[in-house]
């Protein structure tokens, strides 16, 4: 008979036995060893029905098709730009995916994006060797001007965004900042400097406590308290 060895939502460590027997099915972050299931990365155990998986709590970003990311221009190529994606692999933005404008052959590409510019972009394609193609054509994809960029742990990004963007909307509402969250762990914020600071603090809090139940309520209380402090001064 299969048996779960650990409680759902507990922290698991590589090599730790999660379940015994063949009744459970190993998902991502787990593997089968003999009759049992073991974790192969550090994370939060998640059991849905018979499927067992481990939600990572750390780790670098790995480019995935369709992700919205924030990246920095690091080089200008013959027919496009090379961008740093905050992962082990850089991305290429080809001319035709950058703008709808007509670009003359041999034109100076710094007119559009300079080295050091930050862009919000979408990943069009990733090959098996992690050659990454991105685009800035699409709603919300553009050069990010002003504001500030912060780096967070990429595996915490889903919690920062929340269900259907609930968490990030909450921060936007409460602080009045414009926020773009990249799947690669870069976040762009723009607003009044004081509000920006509160937003950053809130994001750091989410990052720190995302694995503990009741996060949304804590974040709500935190934001309200901060707001009170600010208006009180």
């Amino acid at each position: 008979m299969g048996e779960l060895k650990l409680e759902n939502k507990s922290i698991v460590v590589p090599g730790e036995e999660i379940a015994t027997g063949m009744d459970y099915i190993p998902g991502s972050g787990t593997y089968r060893l003999g009759e049992g299931i073991r974790a192969n990365r550090l994370g939060l155990l998640s059991v849905t029905g018979r499927a067992v998986k481990v939600i990572p709590l750390s780790g670098k970003y790995i480019p995935k098709k369709g992700d919205l990311i924030i990246c920095r221009v690091i080089d200008i190529l013959m027919t496009g730009w090379r961008l740093d994606t905050n992962s082990a692999y850089s991305a290429v933005l080809p001319l035709r995916d950058a703008t709808t404008e007509f670009i003359q052959k041999g034109a100076d590409l710094t007119k559009w994006f300079k080295i050091g510019d930050y862009l919000s972009a979408k990943i069009v394609n990733v090959t098996s060797q992690f050659l990454v193609d991105i685009t800035t054509k699409g709603p919300g994809l553009r050069k990010l001007e002003g504001g500030r960029i912060i780096k967070v742990n990429p595996s915490k990004v889903p919690r920062i965004i929340g269900k259907q963007g609930s968490m990030v909307s909450l921060i936007k509402e409460q602080t009045g900042c414009r926020i773009v969250v990249g799947q690669n762990g870069l976040i762009w914020l723009q607003g009044d400097p004081k509000d920006e600071l509160i937003a950053v603090e809130t994001i750091r809090k989410i990052e720190r406590e995302s694995h503990i139940q009741g996060l949304t309520d804590r974040v709500k209380a935190f934001l309200e308290e901060k707001k009170k402090e600010m208006t009180g001064e």
Binding site: G15, G29, R41, L42, P56, K60
Partner: peptide
């Protein structure tokens, strides 16, 4: 390595 989120079978 485990803390860095690298996939590993065991410690």
């Amino acid at each position: 390595l485990a803390d860095a989120g690298i996939t590993m079978k065991d410690l």
